[in-house]
Amino acid sequence: MSAQSHDDTAALTLTAVPLSPEAFAPFGDVIESQGPSNPINQGKGWRYPDLARVDVASGDGRTAISRVACVPEATPVRLRLMERHPLGSQAFIPVDGQRYIVVVAPAGEPPGPDALRAFVASGDQGINYHRGVWHHPMIALDNACDFLEVHRAGPGNNCDEVEIGARIAVRLPDSQEGPL
């Protein structure tokens, strides 16, 4: 599937940086198969334990697993809105190895342009937004991208959305433009 065309004029352009656990820590967890592991299944597999804090118990919530499909977008991508989930965390794990862009801002009041941070994730990295962290909807690159989503289901409003008033776009570093 080819990327969609768009209006790439923007008052502010963010450059996405590579996703790393240290850089993403203020917003959530990076889910990847690195670091300590434990052998399982009679030595035929490995478990990388406790990669993210799933936080869904608020207000009688329960853990739900969904599948999300995203169409690719051409860069620079014009940002549309930010959302947050005040009652629980939300994780996205790519299932088809496609890279994607993550745009976040700290929990709290709706973010201004200076609070936004952009990351480019490889197809083997997932992310877990901590409760209340502002984020843009998923941005697939290159090809369609499917994710497993681990999130809170249950009573109460668990999604606040705010439109981005300024014209803001996110781009990849020159070295990462085009398919990896």
Rank of each mutant, 00 (worst) to 15 (best):
A153F: 01
A23K: 15
D96H: 10
V56F: 02
D50H: 14
T75V: 15
Q125I: 06
E73T: 13
P173G: 02
Y129E: 08
H151Q: 14
I65G: 02
D8G: 13
A105I: 06
P49N: 11
P155M: 01
E22F: 09
V95N: 03
I65R: 09
S2H: 12
S175L: 11
V102A: 12
E32A: 14
R67Q: 04
T9L: 12
R78V: 05
F119Y: 14
G88F: 00
Y100P: 00
V68G: 00
Q4V: 10
R47L: 15
H136R: 11
A166F: 03
A140P: 09
E177M: 13
V102W: 07
H6A: 15
G154C: 00
F147M: 07
D174H: 05
D114T: 14
E22D: 15
G45F: 01
D124S: 12
P21M: 02
P94Q: 06
L148S: 13
L81F: 08
D7R: 15
R62Y: 09
H136C: 09
P113F: 05
I127H: 11
Q98E: 06
A10R: 10
A107R: 14
G178A: 11
I139D: 02
T13C: 13
A16L: 12
R84W: 05
E83W: 05
Q42P: 01
L148W: 15
N157A: 06
S2L: 11
Q42H: 08
A23Q: 14
W46D: 03
I93H: 04
L79C: 05
G28L: 07
P110L: 05
S33D: 12
G123W: 10
T13F: 11
H130I: 06
H136Y: 14
I40T: 12
A11T: 12
A169K: 11
P137Y: 14
D96R: 08
R99M: 04
V54N: 10
T63R: 09
S37M: 04
S33W: 03
G43W: 03
P36E: 05
L79K: 06
P137G: 10
D29Y: 10
A118N: 14
G126E: 11
Q125L: 07
N41H: 08
G61Y: 00
G178R: 14
S20T: 15
S2Q: 13
K44N: 15
P72A: 04
P39H: 00
L12F: 14
R53E: 01
